[in-house]
């Protein structure tokens, strides 16, 4: 079953690599992943759409990664999903009005053009993007670029970064900052 997970990830080298490697190594299907800065410096927030038989196991496995601070499954919560698509449509001048009409109907924008092409941008649910793309594909050959889904639960606690693990009390000697003799 497909689950929508939201992960808070420390921005360390290889962090994303580890998440992807873990999903691949455990044989899970990755549908999309979108990552960007969170409100906390040094911490990224990712939306991961993954096919898994046991989402609890997947979450626990992800939590084993040092960089992963928190993972929540919003699949059964109330949440919004948005995705952005850029679509480049190869269309001769006479058909541009048609493109504009479709774009307007979907609340999409024409963000640029060249003599042969028009580029449309749209942000909406993945399904709506699919509908819009199907329509413009009937007008001319298309190249699509999609961001992957971004998800956010409507409710939830105020954000916080989990506290560091307690210090290993037995290793006090480390604090003696005494260099080598």
């Amino acid at each position: 079953m497909r689950h929508t997970l939201i992960a808070l990830v420390e921005d360390r080298p290889g962090a994303l690599n580890r998440i992807l490697g873990l999903l691949r190594g455990r044989g899970l299907g990755l549908h999309s992943i979108a990552v960007g800065d969170s409100e906390t410096p040094g911490v990224k927030r990712a939306t991961v759409l993954v096919d898994t038989e046991s989402v609890e196991q997947t979450i626990k496995q992800l939590n084993r990664l040092i960089e992963v601070l928190e993972v929540t499954d919003v699949t059964n919560a109330e949440y919004v999903v948005r995705e952005t698509a850029l679509v480049k449509i190869h269309a001769p001048e006479p058909r541009r009005d048609e493109i504009k009409t479709v774009a307007d109907g979907f609340g999409a924008r024409i963000v640029g053009s060249s003599p042969q092409t028009v580029v449309v941008e749209m942000t909406d649910t993945p399904d709506r993007l699919g509908e819009m793309i199907a329509r413009v594909m009937a007008i001319g050959a298309c190249e699509t670029m999609r961001s992957g889904s971004l998800a956010m639960a409507l409710a939830g606690p105020a954000p916080r970064v989990p506290a560091p693990a307690p210090e290993d009390a037995t290793r006090v000697w480390w604090s003696q900052a005494d260099g080598i003799s």
């Binding site: 990664l65 992963v68 970064v161 693990a165 480390w174 604090s175 260099g179």
Partner: peptide
């Protein structure tokens, strides 16, 4: 000049409390 006064900061590695 090494700074040995490092505090452990691995928030994602939480041994169960």
């Amino acid at each position: 000049v090494p700074d040995w006064n490092v505090t452990l900061n691995v928030p994602g590695f939480s041994a169960p409390v």
